[in-house]
Design a protein around this nucleic acid. Structure first.
Length: 272
DNA sequence: CTTACCTCCTGCCCGC
DNA sequence: TGCGGGCAGGAGGTAA
């Protein structure tokens, strides 16, 4: 479940370990992951830049932009061509430095896209329903209020809605609700401007700290490339069902909100 | 326009 | 020991 912090870690690690490399060959082992002409289009392109928007990885290939969404379990590995190929590797890029960049995805939910470069990332078709990145400076209370107009859903569902804020997933949405001392099922339309300002501030603070830790490693998810995050050690509620709240010792509850497993402290987090 | 539910896909865990 | 069912969830699609 790579969210903003895990994707940022992947971007930084790939940039550090690969830098400017040219793709000399491309094997697609699971065709549903890409368009039919993906392999022939991407070869002989050089990765000139690495960036991110929300949970999307963006590779600048000069006259082409390669965008990848890791969804639940996607990861990249840098390996020697002689190394055994896992059955969960679906795309293999052979690089001019003699190594291979391999895309591994147990559940095959990830997707890759190739586009003509655009100056505005939101102009790419895969970003059609994507809002500002959490760290985009244009994301402010005015923007949020506009996006939340007529919305009657809950805080948790808003935090997870990529068309409003891009980058927050199930782990961090629970942590943000806890830091706000708000019940995840709090109706979004009862929040004041001050609450929304706080929501932005707290979200950025938590995700910044998660990035510093190299993301969160829970369940089967490691950020790839042998890099494990450490933010799971800082989680206050997520995955802590039946354990005492760090603030008040109340037992952390797990409920379902918008179809997602949701952890919260019923004493610390009020339904406003 | 909204929200609710299904689908994709595999591994893991539980109960029998 | 083995097997079936349920669960995990990001996001796109469809239905209401």
């Amino acid at each position: 479940m790579p969210e903003l912090a895990e994707v940022e870690t992947v971007v930084r690690t790939l940039e550090h370990q690969l830098g400017q490399v040219t793709i000399k060959a491309c094997q697609v082992l699971y065709p549903r992951m890409v368009e039919a002409d993906f392999a022939q289009r991407i070869i002989n392109h050089t990765i000139q830049g690495y960036s991110r928007h929300g949970k999307y990885l963006i590779f600048d290939l000069g006259d082409l932009t390669w965008i990848t969404h890791l969804r639940m379990e996607g990861k990249f590995y840098i390996q020697n061509p002689e190394e055994e190929i896992s059955k969960h590797v679906h795309i293999i890029l052979t690089l001019d430095n003699g190594l291979q960049l391999r895309y591994h995805d147990t559940r095959k939910f990830g997707r890759m896209y190739l586009y003509e470069p655009q100056s505005d990332v939101l102009a790419y078709p895969c970003m059609k329903n994507i809002g500002y990145d959490l760290f985009d400076e244009r994301l402010d209370v005015t923007y949020l209020k506009n996006k939340l107009l007529n919305k009657k859903t809950t805080l948790k569902q808003v935090l997870l809605d990529q068309s409003i804020i891009a980058g927050i997933g199930n782990i961090y949405s629970d942590e943000i609700a806890f830091a706000l001392k708000l019940h995840p099922e709090t109706k979004i339309n009862v929040l004041t401007d001050d609450d929304l300002a706080k929501l932005i501030e707290v979200s950025r603070d938590i995700l910044s700290r998660a990035i510093e830790c190299g993301g969160t490693t829970i369940r089967s998810y490691t950020s790839s490339l042998g890099v494990d995050g450490r933010f799971q050690l800082s989680l206050k509620v997520h995955t802590r069902q039946n354990l005492p709240c760090f603030n008040c010792n109340t037992i952390i509850k797990k409920i379902v909100v918008g179809g997602r497993g949701t952890y919260y402290c019923e004493f610390c987090q009020i339904k406003k």
